[in-house]
Nucleic acid binder design. Structure first.
Lengths: 235, 235
DNA sequence: CTTGCGATGACTGCATGCAACGAGTGTGCG
DNA sequence: CGCACACTCGTTGCATGCAGTCATCGCAAG
């Protein structure tokens, strides 16, 4: 005899469950938030998917409470939208959104590089070089591997800036960028260009030239945006 | 006969309750979030105050659920910090925080003004003039009145930019700034300087000069930061 | 006097019940 | 045939119970 609760299993259950890392000491709500965010960013839940509280709760084998709080947080982050008494829907991504995200990103990455060049904490330049060289070496590998290294490069810079607001905002911006789907590193030649641009930023930081580092980082993001737009309109 | 629930009334209850606007159609959670945020921003809950879920729930006459969700959101906004199984504490404000907030604000206000100058939606310039003139006229009034007009001036610009990410981040930044306490317009002369700077931004936007508008907005925030720092170290 | 340990209590973390809202649907009337 | 209206059902909104966890305090041993 099967229990009545299990008589409806949703198709994404398996995949979603794998995203849930049961925390040793952290809270379930945090784990659910990360799992759902990852599900949206990876495209498992693509707009305009509806996210039902009890459906997700059953799939993740938790109660509605942590799911509910997770959905609220994702809504605050802009990944979803809440409709009263109806549910939560994954936000659509428009070309305007993309331009908006990159506009903010250009500005904030510039600030991050400028600040990092001013502070230059010990070991930063070496770490940047390490990641940069790994990216150069990975040029012919899987684009997603390059994208991961790229994120690490930028994370190093913003952490070096030591500005919690900047970190928080840039993290959200990166999430938004991931929602566009394919990484721009799938474009032939983009990886090589990005490496050159990274090297320029790296050198400016190494020399402590704040204005140059900021300008190069901004330019880097502008070119990333242009690649992104070309990639999307050609689809 | 008094009920047993009321046997412990917390001293802030009255004040806090006045901040709660019972919504006609919106959710209670949103109302509680706004009330608690306002309580923190206004200094009713100053760091390092502990916010207890059931205490607040009793004061606001709601259950712990909306309070709980509100506290989580405020934590995501950076106003509070959550300690597992212990509670939520109002985040302290340090000089480093202040500098960090203003660094981000300089960058984002610059972007907002640059974008607004490029788009120049109908009526924007007139509205900016109206608010600017109101600020000039209010020069001798209550600094908090000037501060309100000032916020409106900046809100007009960032709404005109039409970038949802920029709007969200700048809103959070403004919240953070309010936590520093007294407005900088309490400083003699700061109001007049700010008016001059606003006029400069306004004119650049009116002429559609994006670079000039951005540069002036950034410079404006830099001076605001300098005033703020002077104000705080003299206390 | 200091330190280690166990009991106690306060508080959060999560589960679950019930009420209320609103979209969709079917029905009856014009 | 079209339109308005009431009803139903799915879903969230909020309340509350209970278990788990961590800090604190007292006590006793070193």
């Amino acid at each position: 005899m099967t229990t009545i609760r299990d008589d409806k299993v949703h198709p994404y259950t398996e995949t979603l469950r794998r995203l849930l890392v049961k925390p040793e000491h952290g809270s379930m709500t945090d784990a659910v938030t990360d799992a759902l965010r990852e599900a949206i960013l990876s495209g498992l839940f693509a707009p305009p998917a509806w996210l039902r509280e009890d459906e997700l709760a059953q799939s993740l084998d938790v109660s509605r409470t942590p799911v509910r709080e997770a959905l609220r947080r994702l809504t605050d982050e802009g990944l979803t939208q809440r409709v009263a008494n109806r549910g939560t829907v994954v936000s659509p991504m428009t070309l305007d959104e993309i331009l908006a995200v990159y506009a903010v990103r250009e500005s904030l990455e510039g600030l991050a590089a400028r600040t990092a060049a001013g502070r230059r904490p010990a070991g930063l330049v070496d770490e940047l070089k390490r990641v940069h060289e790994a990216m150069v070496a990975a040029a012919d590998e899987d684009p997603s591997r390059i994208a991961t290294l790229n994120l690490e490069f930028h994370r190093l810079i913003r952490d070096a800036a030591g500005n919690p607001y900047l970190t928080r905002f840039l993290t959200q911006v990166e999430h938004a960028v991931r929602r566009f789907g394919q990484t721009t590193f799938a474009i032939p030649g983009r990886g090589a260009d990005a490496n050159d641009e990274h090297l320029g930023i790296l050198e400016a930081i190494a020399e402590g030239d704040q204005e140059l580092a900021g300008a190069r980082a901004t330019a880097h993001m502008r070119r990333a945006r242009e690649s992104r737009v070309r990639q999307l309109i050609s689809m």
